[in-house]
Computed example of a mutant assay.
Amino acid sequence: MSRSLRHGAFAATALVFSIAALSACSAGNDAQTLQVRPDNAATAVDSIKIQNLNIVTQPEPDAEGPAVIAATLFNDGPKREVVETIALPGTNATVALKPAKGKGPLVVPAGGRLIIGGKDNASAVIENGRQAGANGNVQNVAFTFSETGEVSLGAAIVPATSFFKDFGPSALPSAKPTPSDSASGTPGASETPGEQSGSPSGEATDTAPPADGAAAEH
Results as ranks from 00 to 15, higher is better:
Ser23His: 07
Ala24Asp: 08
Cys25Pro: 00
Cys25Phe: 10
Ser26Trp: 10
Ser26Met: 08
Ala27Gln: 14
Ala27Glu: 09
Gly28Cys: 05
Gly28Lys: 03
Asn29Met: 08
Asn29Val: 06
Asn29Leu: 06
Asn29Gln: 13
Asp30Ser: 15
Ala31Val: 03
Gln32Trp: 10
Thr33Ser: 12
Leu34Val: 05
Leu34Trp: 11
Gln35Trp: 07
Gln35Ala: 15
Arg37Lys: 11
Arg37Thr: 15
Pro38Trp: 04
Pro38Thr: 04
Asp39Lys: 09
Asp39Pro: 05
Asn40Glu: 15
Asn40Phe: 12
Thr43Cys: 10
Thr43Gln: 07
Ala44Lys: 15
Val45Gln: 08
Val45His: 13
Asp46His: 12
Asp46Tyr: 11
Ser47Ala: 13
Ser47Asn: 12
Ile48Cys: 03
Lys49Phe: 05
Ile50Trp: 02
Ile50Glu: 06
Ile50Met: 04
Gln51Tyr: 06
Gln51Phe: 06
Asn54Thr: 11
Asn54Gly: 01
Ile55Cys: 03
Ile55Asn: 01
Val56Ala: 03
Val56Gly: 00
Gln58Met: 07
Gln58Thr: 09
Gln58Glu: 09
Pro59Gly: 10
Pro59Cys: 09
Gly65Pro: 01
Pro66Ser: 11
Ala67Met: 06
Ile69Asp: 00
Ile69Leu: 05
Ile69His: 01
Ala70His: 03
Ala71Cys: 04
